[in-house]
C-alpha cells in the first residue's frame, strides 16, 4: 500500500514539470523565445532526473528505507522522457530534421557531440528497464549495462557546462552534486573492498 502511494506520487510529481511547461506554452508564459525555454528546461529536467535516480541508492543506504528502490526505474525513465523531448526539440525545431545539418552540428560542436552520445547511451537502458529484460539478461550483464548511467550523467553535466556562454554557476551546481553522488559510490566501494580484504585475511589467519 505504502509502496503504491510512493509510486503514484512519484509518477505524478515527475510529470508535473512537463505539464507546467505545456501549460506555459499554451498560455504564452514561456517568454519571448518559448522554444529555447522548452529546450533548455527539458534538458535540465532530464539532467535532474538522472541525478535523482543516482541519489536513490545512497539515500536507501543512509535511511534504510528500502521502498525507495521501487521508484528508481520510474525516475530513470523520466530522465529518458525529458531527454527525449529535449532531443526532439533540437532535431525538429532547431535542425528541422535535416540529417546533414545535424551531423555537421555534432562534428563541429563538442557540446552537441557529448549531449548526443549521452542521449544515445540512455536508449539501451530505457529499453532494458523492465523486469522481463532483467530476467533475460541476467543480473550480472544487466548491472554492467546499467552502470552506463554514470557515464551518461557525467556526459549530461559536461554537455551543460560546455554550452553555457559565460556564467557557469548553474552547471557547477550539477557538477558538485554529481561529484557527491559518485564520490559516495567510490567511498562505499573502497570501504567494501577493504572490509572484504580484511575479512579474508582474518579468515586466512584463523585457518592457520
Amino acid at each position: 500500500m505504502l509502496v503504491s502511494i510512493l509510486k503514484v506520487s512519484t509518477f505524478v510529481l515527475s510529470l508535473l514539470p512537463a505539464v507546467l511547461l505545456f501549460y506555459g506554452l499554451l498560455t504564452d508564459q514561456l517568454g519571448a523565445n518559448p522554444i529555447e525555454t522548452l529546450t533548455r528546461d527539458t534538458g535540465e529536467w532530464g539532467l535532474r532526473f538522472l541525478l535523482i535516480t543516482l541519489a536513490i541508492s545512497p539515500l536507501r543506504l543512509l535511511t534504510s528505507w528500502h521502498a525507495l528502490a521501487t521508484i528508481r526505474r520510474m525516475l530513470g525513465l523520466y530522465a529518458f522522457f525529458y531527454a527525449c523531448i529535449h532531443m526532439l526539440l533540437y532535431i525538429g525545431l532547431d535542425q528541422f530534421f535535416n540529417l546533414s545539418d545535424i551531423i555537421s552540428d555534432i562534428v563541429d560542436r563538442p557540446f552537441i557531440l557529448v549531449g548526443f552520445v549521452s542521449f544515445i547511451a540512455l536508449i539501451p537502458l530505457a529499453v532494458t528497464s523492465n523486469k522481463a529484460m532483467i530476467d533475460r539478461m541476467g543480473s550480472v550483464l544487466w548491472n554492467r549495462l546499467h552502470s552506463l548511467i554514470y557515464y551518461i550523467a557525467i556526459g549530461g553535466v559536461v554537455h551543460f557546462y560546455m554550452l553555457v556562454k559565460k556564467d557557469v554557476t548553474d552547471p557547477v551546481y550539477y557538477i558538485i552534486i554529481l561529484i557527491l553522488l559518485l564520490g559516495f559510490r567510490l567511498y562505499s566501494y573502497i570501504r567494501r573492498t577493504l572490509f572484504t580484504a580484511k575479512n579474508t585475511s582474518l579468515h586466512h589467519s584463523e585457518n592457520k
Partner: peptide, 19 residues
C-alpha cells in the same frame, strides 16, 4: 563563419517556431 557554440547559418526570429 560558425561560432564554437552556435552554427550561424540560421536564426530564430523571436515569435517564429522555425529558424
Amino acid at each position: 563563419v560558425s561560432h564554437p557554440r552556435w552554427s550561424q547559418t540560421r536564426e530564430r526570429r523571436i515569435g517564429d517556431l522555425l529558424k
